[in-house]
Amino acid sequence: MATDFGEGSTAEANEYETLMSTTDVQLLKTAWRNEKAAPEILQFQVQLVKRATEQIQLMEETVEEFEESGMDPLTVSLYQMDLDRAQFLLRSYLRIRLQKVEKYMFYIRKNDNLRNRLSEPERVFVNRCIDDMEKHLGDTVLSKLPDNYQSARRQSIISEEDDMVPEPQLETFVACKSSNRFVSLRLVDSERPLEMERHDVSFVLYKVIEEKVGVDIDLV
């Protein structure tokens, strides 16, 4: 792999980066990025979120103790900055997921595969969202329409399936990088696989890499 780097230093830096990227914050950052860039909701990172939450709580207590014990204010402020960064990542991760749940609530609830990706609180949230949305639409509009047009999910009673439910657009393109040294992708329209090394960025049809996101491939 080092052969096509003129200087060599960048290659070493990348290798080093890989070795270093094992803290939960790094993992959370990757999960956050993937979630942000993916058109659909991804598998909730139960263990990771649990660990990150615990570490954040612990650190909050530690920082408080530091303050009380009269520790050097500079050190305390540095710990606080580290804490803020971890909290930002966790909050942003959870928030993006909630946005997706709100956007695709009807679709997520009827699709087992997607529903299983949610955390327990998210499942509660999706149900409450749907109840609220149906009640709101019913009260404001649907109850005033003729009988055949009162569904929030179907255009009319003759629709055979839910045809007013927004679905995530999986046939979209995303930018991605290989998280391993090398990954090979089978494309739909080409005989040759797409081969990616760590320094390659590819714009690929999301459907093609869907199952590899978070495994061999990270979205950027």
């Binding site: 494309l187 320094h199 960025v201 690929v204 049809l205 093609v208």
Partner: peptide
């Protein structure tokens, strides 16, 4: 269905 660009940076992406 895919475009690969080697060494493209984060901001450029």
């Amino acid at each position: 269905s895919a475009v690969k660009i080697a060494h493209l940076s984060a901001m450029e992406v």
